[in-house]
Design a protein around this nucleic acid. Structure first.
Lengths: 203, 203, 203, 203
DNA sequence: CTTTAACCGAGACGGTACGTCTGGTCTTAAT
DNA sequence: ATTAAGACCAGACGTACCGTCTCGGTTAAAG
C-alpha cells in the first residue's frame, strides 16, 4: 500500500485563494476515533455520530471530507491499521507468494481487524458509492500478486499462457471466502501447501 | 438444495389449544412481496416496513416469523428465486464440476439475483444472528461439490491425499470474490478451463 | 377557552379497526415537559429535542401529533398555563370589560407567561403553518369581548352603529403592542380608565 | 427616519492608526442582497449565509458590521424600503393624525414590506439583542405621533389631562395587532373614522 | 514611501437542532 | 391465538445555519 493521499481531492483543488486551511488535528482525531471504535464495538456498531463524539469533532466536518462511514473506515484502515503488506521479490515465485499469503492469512489472528475487513466488504455490497474506492483498494492488493506472477512468467517458472488474473483471484478468493463464511480457519503456516497447489494448477 | 421448511412451524404444531391458525396467505404474500421488491429496488433498499406494506401485512407478523430482513430474503431466495442447483453424477469428476460451475457462474446473467446474493453475504457479515442460517445454506452448497470430489477420489481420478475442502473453497472462493468485487466477469462458457485448472492443482 | 380537542385530527379519523391506542401518558408528559422548559429557559430556547428528552418520549412521537414547536406550546399553554380567562356578564358593559382587561393585563405579572405569549406571536409571524391555529386561538379570545360589546349594544349602552370589531382590536391592540414592544407597563389597576376611554370613543 | 449611520460605532472608534477603510461596496451589496432576498423568499427564509452568497461577500464581513440578521434587515429596511413616513403639521390634530394613519396602514398594500415588518417584530421577541435597536426605531415612530398630540393639547384641541402615551399606543396597537394577526384588513381610506374614534376617546 | 493595522474573500471549524427514517416492541380491536 | 393496525421508544441519518476562526491578500492612513 503506497503512501495515502488525504481522503478527498488530492491534486485537483482549483483556485484556493483563501480560506482556513484544513485542520490536520481534526483529520487525525477522526481517523484515530474510527479505529478505536472499530476495535471496541465492531464495524457495524460504529456510526458517524459516535466517531464525531469520540473525536471531539463536528459531524459536519466528517461529512465534509468523507462520503460515508465506509470511506472513512477504509481510510483509517489504510492509514493506521493495515500493517504494510509485503511486496516480496526473492527471485522465486513460490517463495514470493508464500510470504504474501502468510501475511494475508495472518489477519485472522487479529479478530477485530478481520471484522473490519469483513465490514468493509459488506459495505461495498450495500453502498454503490463505496464500491468504487473499495474496488480501487482491492486492485492495489491484486496488483502486488500480479507482479509476482508476471515475474514468474518472465523467469519461465510459469507457462506463458497462464491466466494470471484467474490465479490471482484464486489466491484472494480462497482468503475472502473463508474470511467471510468462517467455516474453516486460515492458517498462515499452511501457506506453502496452498501456494504449491496454486502453482500446480498453472502448468 | 433440498426443499426448505418454512422458517418456523408448518406441520409440527402440536399444542393446538385454540386460536386463529397461521395464515398461509400472509406467509406467501410476504415472500412474494420480498421477491418483488428485491427485483424492483434491490436488496439494500428493501426494508421490513416496505415488505409489510406491499404484502398488506403487519410488521409484527413478519417479526413473529422471521428474525430479520436477511432471514426472510434467504427464505424467499430459496423458495422462489433459486433455480434448482444441479447435483450432477455423470461418472466424470471434470464433467460434474463443469456442470456445477457453469450453473453457479450463470447467476451473473441475472443481475438482480446476483445483487440479492451479494446482499445476503453482506448481511451475514453485519448481523451475527443471520450468519448462522446463511452459513448453513452455504454448507449445503459446498456439500454438493464435496460429494462430487469424494466420488472422484473413490474412482481414483483424484489423489487420496487431496485436500477436498481446499479445492471446494477454491471453486466457491473464485466465484464469490468476483461476484463481490466485480472486477472481472464470470463466464459460464469458461467453466471447462476453470475446472481443468482446478483439477490440475490436485495433480 | 373551551375544552380542547387532542391536537390533531379530532373527528375525521376514518376506519380505526385496530392498532395501539394513543398513550395519554406520553401526551401529558410532552405537554408537561413543554411547560416546564418554557418556564425554565424561555420559549425560544425550547426545542423539540429537549422536550422529547425531558418527557422521556421519542421525537417521532412528538412529530406524530404536533406540527411544530409552536403548535405544541400553544396546546400546552391552553391546557396547563392559561388561567381560565373570565367571560363576565355583570349587566354592565364597563364592568365586564374592566374585568376582562384586568385579567388580560395581569399576564405581565407573570414574566415567563408573558414571554411565552410573545414567543407564540413571533412564531406565528415566521411559520405560516402555525399562523392558522394561533389565529383561531386569537379569535376565541376576541369572541369573548365581542359578545360583551354586543350585549352592550342590545342594552343601549353603545350606539347601534359602533364598529365592535374595531373596538375589540383597540382593546387587544394596546395590550399586544405594549407586551411586544415593552416600552410601557400594563397595569391591571388602570383597567377602569382604559375601559372608560375605550367606551368614550364609541359614542 | 433620518439618514442612518453605519450600523455600529460611528464616532467612538478612537485608536485609528491605519488600516484599510471600510468597503462601501461591500456594505451596499449586503444591504441590496438583503432587500432582494427579503422580497424573493420572505424574512424568515433569509439567512446570513444566503445574504453573503448573494452579495458576493464573506460571512465574516457581515458579522463584523451587524450583530444579527434582524439588525441587518432593520438597517436595510430603513435605508431602502421605508418610504419617508410623514411628519405632518397642518394645524389640525385630526388631519395630522389622518395623514399619518393613512400612511401607516398603506403598508399593507405592499405585502412583502408588511412581511418584513412582521418578521422584525417577531425577531425582537426572540432575540433580546435585537429588541434594543428595534425598540429605538419604534420609539422614533411613536415620537412623531406624540408630537402631533402634544400640539393638539397646546392648541386646546385635546384636554390637558389626556394620556398621550395611551392614545399613541392605541393608534399603533390597532395597526400592529391587525398586521400581526391578519384577521381584518387595514384600509388607509378608513383612516378618518379611526382618527375620529381615537380623538373621541379623549373627549 | 514604507510600515502596519484593519479590511476583504474564502472557507474550514465546532456546534445545535432539524425533520426523516428504520428498527424492533407493545397494545388494541377484530377474527 | 393470531391477525392488521398502528403507536411507542430509540437513535442514526444527512442537512442547514449558526457564529468563530484562520488564511492569504489588499488598501490606505500614519509615520
Amino acid at each position: 500500500m503506497p503512501a495515502q493521499e488525504p481522503p478527498a481531492d488530492p491534486a485537483p483543488r482549483p483556485p484556493r485563494t483563501g480560506g482556513r486551511t484544513r485542520s490536520q488535528e481534526a483529520r487525525s482525531a477522526v481517523l484515530a476515533a474510527a479505529v478505536e471504535l472499530l476495535e471496541e464495538i465492531g464495524y457495524q456498531a460504529v456510526t458517524i455520530e459516535r466517531i464525531a463524539a469520540r473525536a471531539g469533532v463536528a459531524k459536519s466536518t466528517i461529512y465534509r471530507w468523507w462520503k460515508s462511514k465506509a470511506a472513512l473506515v477504509l481510510d483509517a484502515y489504510r492509514e493506521t491499521v493495515e500493517q504494510r503488506m509485503p511486496d516480496p521479490d526473492t527471485g522465486s515465485t513460490a517463495e514470493d507468494l508464500t510470504v504474501f499469503v502468510a501475511a494475508l492469512h495472518s489477519v485472522t489472528e487479529r479478530p477485530l481487524r478481520a471484522r473490519a475487513l469483513r465490514g468493509l466488504m459488506a459495505e461495498a455490497q450495500l453502498d454503490p458509492d463505496f464500491a468504487e474506492p473499495f474496488g480501487a483498494w482491492v486492485q492495489s492488493r491484486r496488483a502486488v500478486v500480479l507482479r509476482v506472477l508476471a515475474r514468474g512468467v518472465d523467469r519461465g517458472e510459469l507457462p506463458r499462457a497462464t491466466d494470471l488474473e484467474a490465479l490471482t483471484d484464486q489466491l484472494f478468493g480462497l482468503f475472502w471466502y473463508r474470511l467471510l463464511v468462517g467455516h474453516l480457519p486460515l492458517d498462515p503456516a499452511r501457506a506453502p501447501q496452498l501456494v504449491a497447489q496454486l502453482l500446480n494448477s498453472a502448468h
